[in-house]
Amino acid sequence: MNKKKKAGIVIGILFTVALIVGFIIYKSIFSANTNFPEKEIYVKIPTGSDYDQILEIIKPFVKDIGKFKSVAEKRSYSENVFPGRFMFKKGMNSFEMVTALRHNEPLNLAFNNQESLEKLVSRLSSQMEIDSTTMINSFRDSVFMKANGFNEETILGMFIPNTYEVKWNISPEKFREKMANEYKKFWNDDRKAKAKALNMTPEQVITLAAIVHKETVKIDERPRVAGVYLNRLKLDMPLQADPTIIFALKKRDNDFNQVIKRVFSGDLIINSPYNTYLNIGLPPGPIAMPDISAIDAVLNAEKHNYIYFCASVERFGYHEFAETFAEHGVWAKKYREWIANQGVTR
């Protein structure tokens, strides 16, 4: 066999070996390496996690962790890890998964209708990395509250119910700043002008809106209910809002999970700044987080002469409105008779 032929054979063998090695490398890097049935999943890497801890976290979702490690180390991921929320798609290869672990996916954070800061924090901490204790201490930081015009009674009003895009592992300081900025953004020139026309601050509007929100679930009725309370404020009449009594009872008992469906005459004498039967004007802060429709209902309240309203027994969910106490008494009697027949004891 001549040298030329031998050389050709050697080259052929080397080429074949190269193809085999290349195929093995290709399979190692670019073949599917996921191990879950869903189309996509989110992997959460806690703050402070090191490479070995991350491997343990992702292991259940990776078919061959050895292949993943090989690619991760070649791409220097093992030396450059960071926390966050990362999306794996079904069928991803190791290369794509390493890439995914470098892209912290935001989440859509939603909250509404919370009656206390504690309940809000519980809702938020279930969706984010921040623990509830750290979060509530951050919100109640006196320097932060004062800088943004809030106090312990009004801070709940800073959180406008909506859906916000945030990082899962956002720090409590950055999160509270984001919420403060969203609050300022919400109170645009138009809303601030309407509040000023009512001779109210944004914080006072939210306090009243919380009462309106609790009084009626019917969005189309909220401007009329808001008009009643604004009329009472102008006349220096007590608001006499049952939801404030319910809030005062829950606050006294330190139990916002209890369900109170009915307010009795004995409840109306509770010693609380939130008792709008004994105190004239607005309570010291919101009794819940009003949604945007309730806030705008106050800012765009219906102009009328009603100063009373009572739950309707004919149009459930709605109310009957009255200008005089005598007229109101007729509706109130019907409601008392109806609720007595329902057997509601609390």
Rank of each mutant, 00 (worst) to 15 (best):
N188P: 03
K174P: 03
V166D: 11
Y183R: 07
T133H: 13
N148E: 07
D189W: 01
E153S: 15
V143H: 13
M135N: 07
I160A: 07
E203G: 01
P202F: 05
D141N: 15
S138Y: 00
F159T: 00
K196G: 02
K194G: 01
I170S: 12
K146Q: 14
P161Q: 05
K185G: 05
F150A: 08
N151V: 02
M135K: 02
I160N: 10
N137T: 09
R191V: 03
E203V: 11
P161W: 02
I170V: 14
K196C: 08
P202Q: 07
K184A: 08
D141K: 08
T163C: 11
F144G: 04
S142R: 11
L156F: 11
G149Y: 03
R191I: 01
T201R: 10
Y164C: 03
E165P: 01
D190Y: 13
M179F: 10
Q204K: 04
A147W: 07
N188I: 01
D189V: 05
I170A: 05
S142I: 00
K196Q: 14
V166Y: 14
K196F: 04
P172N: 08
P172H: 06
I170P: 05
S132F: 02
K146H: 12
P202Y: 03
D189E: 15
T154M: 10
F159I: 01
F150N: 06
M145I: 00
E152A: 08
N148Q: 10
V166N: 13
V205Q: 11
V143E: 13
E177F: 01
P202N: 04
V143Y: 14
A197N: 09
N162H: 13
